[in-house]
Simulated assay, not measured.
Amino acid sequence: MTKPPTVYDVAHHAGVSIATVSRVLSRPDDVKPATRDRVLASVGELGYVPSGAARGLAARRTGVIGLFFQGLDAMDDLGDIALEGDEAAAGGARIVRDIPERTDTRTLNLYFDEVLRGCELESWRSGFALLVGVGRGSTATQTVRDMAGRVDGLMVLAGSTSEEELARLSRHVPIVVMAGPRRGDDLDHVSVSNAEGMRTLTAHLIDDLGARELEYVAGSLGSPDDAERWSGFRAALADRSLEAPEEPTLRGDFTREGGRRVGRELFRRDGLPRAVVCANDQMALGVIDAARIAGVAVPEELIVTGFDGIDAGRLSAPRLTTVRQPMETLGRVSVQALARRLAEPKLPAMSVRLPVEVVLRESSESSVAVSLP
């Protein structure tokens, strides 16, 4: 590899000053067209790439914003990949029989995929580079601290790190909290209508479908989204004088395998509830998997609903009734909120709450495909 060209090389090649090269790269309209063309020709011929680090030192900005969230489920089972020897990837093909009962711990984190896509799109649109970090357990705090030292601002999924840590970091870098309600802090927040969505869905199951025995499948402990959805579920029951426990009795940890585990537990009981209301789509799809294996008909014997609106729910059999949240929009609006904070640091903290939709499909009503477009 040869030594990369510098701004000095470009200036010498084009016969101009270093300041002129800088103006061409940062404010090209301020430079005469002939001079600008000569400098750009030298940039292309030499293969010069401006140093982001140098620009950052000059402007005290990196042009990079960060997105931090908890580690993926697959991190728990992540092993080494061999590059040499018998374990190396040398090509070939084999046949593998897919068994429905098999446990797959490599759950697709489709919610994160959609939020990340929104962040990527809006970062590109706004002229930022996006740095993504994940952390789990003891690594989470160190990871988010490292990221905060490398970016102009940081978006953090609620519950990914402690509120105390967010308060400490916010003294040094602007922070937007995603998918969580404000809890006495002065940070910018972007969330969705979790409680309202779950309350509306549960009311529909009770009022329109006549369900009276409902079980709630919670996600991970400490999840702000889950807490809001649980409160919406309980509120709908309380509005109709139906009893609800103080805390969820079933948890699936937001994973499809967790939903299968909950389903197997339910099907070992003497009787079934009329409806299983899951805190996210992945767990709902897991319950449907378990029902299919156990021979339980959905929705005739058991109504199953989710929350998120991932594509897998639209493609499942039966298709999943869910509360569709604007995941991509959540990512985009979070970037917009961070850009606003970077442009005007003294503005009051903002809270944006995005609307949701209750989407009715065949997992709750067998006739829904006929009655709804």
Score class of each variant (00 low, 15 high):
residue 144 V to L: 11
residue 37 D to L: 02
residue 290 A to H: 01
residue 118 G to T: 12
residue 241 S to R: 13
residue 157 L to H: 14
residue 189 H to K: 14
residue 63 G to Y: 04
residue 239 D to G: 12
residue 330 L to W: 06
residue 190 V to T: 13
residue 366 S to N: 04
residue 245 P to F: 03
residue 350 M to Q: 15
residue 24 V to H: 05
residue 238 A to E: 15
residue 52 G to R: 10
residue 206 I to G: 14
residue 294 A to L: 00
residue 272 L to Y: 03
residue 278 C to R: 01
residue 86 D to H: 04
residue 288 I to K: 01
residue 147 M to V: 09
residue 79 G to E: 10
residue 194 N to C: 05
residue 132 V to Q: 10
residue 303 I to C: 05
residue 85 G to C: 08
residue 320 L to E: 10
residue 164 E to T: 14
residue 148 A to P: 00
residue 222 G to M: 04
residue 50 P to Q: 10
residue 229 R to F: 06
residue 182 R to V: 05
residue 128 F to Y: 15
residue 24 V to M: 02
residue 71 G to F: 00
residue 110 L to M: 11
residue 54 A to G: 06
residue 97 R to M: 01
residue 236 A to D: 09
residue 47 G to F: 06
residue 148 A to C: 08
residue 165 E to H: 05
residue 296 V to T: 05
residue 173 V to I: 14
residue 17 S to K: 01
residue 106 R to A: 14
residue 287 V to E: 07
residue 38 R to G: 09
residue 156 V to I: 15
residue 134 V to F: 11
residue 311 D to A: 15
residue 276 V to D: 03
residue 211 A to I: 01
residue 288 I to S: 04
residue 281 D to L: 06
residue 196 E to P: 00
residue 127 G to N: 11
residue 175 I to P: 05
residue 180 G to P: 08
residue 211 A to M: 12
residue 94 R to G: 14
residue 277 V to H: 03
residue 91 G to N: 05
residue 168 R to C: 03
residue 373 P to A: 13
residue 327 M to D: 02
residue 320 L to V: 08
residue 53 A to L: 07
residue 346 K to P: 06
residue 304 V to D: 09
residue 180 G to T: 10
residue 192 V to I: 15
residue 150 R to F: 03
residue 290 A to M: 02
residue 16 V to Q: 03
residue 14 A to P: 04
residue 202 T to H: 11
residue 367 S to V: 05
residue 16 V to S: 06
residue 314 R to K: 09
residue 175 I to Q: 14
residue 338 L to C: 13
residue 276 V to G: 08
residue 326 P to A: 13
residue 4 P to G: 04
residue 86 D to C: 00
residue 210 G to L: 08
residue 30 D to P: 00
residue 148 A to I: 07
residue 332 R to T: 07
residue 300 E to L: 01
residue 173 V to C: 13
residue 34 A to S: 12
residue 238 A to Q: 14
residue 3 K to Y: 00
residue 141 T to L: 07
residue 189 H to W: 10
residue 15 G to N: 09
residue 85 G to Y: 05
residue 161 T to Q: 09
residue 2 T to L: 01
residue 362 E to P: 01
residue 290 A to C: 03
residue 64 V to G: 02
residue 237 L to K: 11
residue 5 P to D: 09
residue 339 A to K: 13
residue 336 Q to E: 15
residue 255 T to G: 12
residue 39 V to Q: 12
residue 93 A to P: 00
residue 32 K to W: 00
residue 153 G to Q: 13
residue 112 F to K: 03
residue 333 V to H: 11
residue 27 R to F: 05
residue 363 S to C: 03
residue 329 T to L: 11
residue 207 D to L: 07
residue 145 R to K: 12
residue 259 G to P: 09
residue 76 D to C: 00
residue 33 P to R: 11
residue 131 L to C: 07
residue 234 R to N: 06
residue 291 A to N: 02
residue 46 L to F: 04
residue 346 K to F: 02
residue 39 V to D: 09
residue 123 S to F: 10
residue 284 A to C: 07
residue 350 M to T: 15
residue 12 H to D: 11
residue 320 L to H: 06
